[in-house]
Amino acid sequence: MRKRTLLIVEDEARLRMVITDYFSQANWYVVEAENGRDAIERLAENEIDLVITDILMPVMDGWDLCRTIRRESNIPIIVLTSKAEDEDKLRGYEMGSDDYIGKPFSPKVLVAKANSLLDRIDGVFSASKTAITGTRLAINSLAHEVEVNGKIVSLGPKEFDILLYFIKNRGIVLSRESILNQIWGYNFDGDIRVVDTQIKRLRAKIGDEADLIQTVPRYGYKFAVKL
């Protein structure tokens, strides 16, 4: 089995070395970059499974890196920064990051977060047809088909992508901006209300499971499974 490959983007060489050592000991292959521009080059040269990036870096910072990656890829991203305020966390999620850890941190915890994130993603998308725990939904990611209570429903491409994005981020409140950027891209110049329109259609099509997609007033939406 191929080792999981990490791209660590951090301008502080000593911290980069520590993170590399811990992930290497955990049987990961590690690729290093010291800023966002270098990271883009490494992504083009390697098959990367996870990006861990600092925010405050020269040349290209972590925000711009997240933005650039999300235009082309759904590679999982963990944001690593000394900034731990809620607004920075929300901005990280809006930029398309999957998790957030503030400095100082335990390298062991970082490795555990990385493994947990990829295990969860692999569990959802590895099989051609996967039942989503806590729901009556099943998704065939290869055929782009969704079943509700055993019956196939026809979703449009954007509706399907939104549903996958919700499942990947189950339990996390997603702003309309983050959904728009993830599904339509940062260069989309249409109205943000397109998000509400697509989610209304998605809810209608998944019928009895529509209440899985909860509206969070004045912010966005959350996919809440029935445990």
Rank of each mutant, 00 (worst) to 15 (best):
R170S: 13
G171R: 04
T215V: 11
A127W: 11
H144R: 15
K83R: 10
A210I: 06
L212K: 01
G92H: 03
I139G: 11
A26S: 08
H144K: 15
M95R: 07
G62L: 06
I213C: 00
A26R: 00
S141C: 15
S128C: 15
D11P: 01
A33K: 01
I206A: 07
A210H: 06
G171H: 05
D161T: 08
R42D: 08
E209I: 04
R37P: 13
L164F: 14
R120S: 13
R91I: 04
I48H: 02
L202N: 05
R37G: 12
F188S: 00
V225G: 05
R70Q: 08
I19E: 01
G156T: 13
L137F: 00
R136Q: 15
V146D: 06
E47A: 11
A33Q: 02
N149Q: 14
S141D: 15
L180K: 12
V216A: 04
D64E: 14
A84K: 08
Q214V: 12
I48L: 00
K113G: 03
K151G: 11
L6T: 03
A224L: 10
Y219A: 04
D119M: 10
K226E: 10
I152Y: 13
Q182I: 08
I75Y: 02
M57C: 01
T135F: 05
R120W: 12
D21W: 13
Y29W: 12
S128A: 15
E32M: 01
G185A: 00
Y219T: 10
V18M: 06
N46L: 06
T53H: 01
E147M: 13
V216M: 03
P157I: 08
W63Q: 10
L56S: 09
I152M: 13
E87T: 11
E32T: 07
D49A: 04
L227S: 13
F105G: 03
G123E: 05
V146E: 04
G171W: 03
D21I: 12
I183K: 02
S128V: 10
V18C: 05
R67F: 11
F105K: 01
L155T: 06
T81E: 01
R4L: 09
L7D: 01
